[in-house]
Nucleic acid binder design. Structure first.
Lengths: 156, 156
DNA sequence: ATTGAAAATAGGCACGT
DNA sequence: ACGTGCCTATTTTCAAT
C-alpha cells in the first residue's frame, strides 16, 4: 500500500469505471502493472467492489428515512440483525454505542411503504421501540474522502 | 425506463465495472444497444456515477461516527452547508425533519481527529449543539436495493 | 460490421532480501 | 537463490462509429 496504490484507490473511488490504461497514464505505469495492483487491492480487501451510483428518486425511491432501533433487555442481536438484513429497504445498518443501538438508512417509494416498514420493524422480537426521522433533502452522500499517507493495517 | 433499463441499473449497481458486452448477454441485446441505454441513463441523471467501494479500515479510516447538528435560531443554512461541505471527513450530509436538522456521517483515522472535528463543527456560526454517536460496527452499508416496476419520474 | 483500443495472459528482466 | 514488481509481447475481447 504505497503512494501509487493510494492514487489508484482515489481515482477508482472518484470514477469506478476508469480503465486500466487510463489509470496507468495517471500513475506513470503500464496497464498490466496497474491491473496487478488493482487485483491485489481487491484480494487484500481494500477494494471490496464497484457500484453504479443511482439517483434514488429516478428509480422510484423518493423517500429516505433514518430509523433508530431501541432494543429491550431480552434482545437477541443475531436474530435482530438477521431480520433486519432480510428487509431490502434497509440500505445501511450501523451498530451504535448508544440507547438506539442500531441506526438504519432506508428508502421507500411512498409514505405508506415507510409506515408499513416501521410496523414490521416494531414486530421484530427484541425491538422495544423505533424512532424515525424523515430526510428532507440529501445534501450529499458517500462522498469519497481522498486517502492520504496514514494507512491502517499495513497490508502485507 | 423499461424493464431492460431497470435490469441494467440493477446489474451496474451490483457490479459497476460490468462490461457492455456482459450486460448485453444478460439482457439479450447487442453491446451497442446497451451502451446507448447506459449513456441515456447517465444523461437523464438516473446513473450519476461509478465508485469503487473501499474498506474504510484498510485505508486508515477506522472510526465512523454519526453526528447530529442542532442549529440556533440565527442559523444561516447556506453558510452552514458550505462550511460542512468544506470538511472532507463528512462523507454524507442529510437535512432532516427534526431538532437535529443535519445528520452527518463522518470517518476519521483516530479518536483525536474526531474530537478535533467536533470542535470545528461547534465553531460554525449558527451551530448551537452537536451530538455524536460512535458506530461500533457497520453491519452493512449502501446495499443496492433492486429497483422494481414502480418508476418515479417517467424519464422521457 | 469494421476499426481501433483496451483487457487478459504469459514470459522475462531487474532489483532487493 | 528467491520473491517482488514492472515491463514487453501476444491474443482475445471490447468499445465506438
Amino acid at each position: 500500500m504505497d503512494e501509487i496504490d493510494r492514487t489508484i484507490v482515489n481515482l477508482l473511488r472518484a470514477d469506478g469505471r476508469t480503465s486500466y490504461a487510463e489509470l496507468a497514464r495517471r500513475v506513470g505505469l503500464t496497464a498490466p502493472s496497474v491491473q496487478d495492483r488493482v487485483t491485489k487491492l481487491e484480494k487484500n480487501g481494500v477494494i471490496t467492489g464497484y457500484q453504479a451510483v443511482v439517483d434514488p428518486e429516478a428509480v422510484g425511491l423518493g423517500i429516505t428515512a433514518l430509523i433508530g432501533i431501541i432494543p429491550d433487555s431480552s434482545a437477541d442481536h443475531i436474530e435482530i440483525c438477521d431480520r433486519l438484513r432480510a428487509m431490502t429497504e434497509i440500505e445501511s445498518c450501523y451498530f451504535l454505542a448508544g440507547v438506539e443501538c442500531y441506526q438504519l438508512k432506508v428508502r421507500v417509494p411512498k409514505m405508506a411503504d415507510l409506515e408499513r416498514l416501521i410496523h414490521r420493524l416494531g414486530g421484530i422480537p427484541g425491538v422495544a421501540q423505533t424512532r424515525t426521522t424523515i430526510t428532507l433533502s440529501t445534501k450529499w452522500e458517500d462522498r469519497p474522502q481522498p486517502v492520504g499517507a496514514e494507512d491502517g493495517r499495513g497490508i502485507d
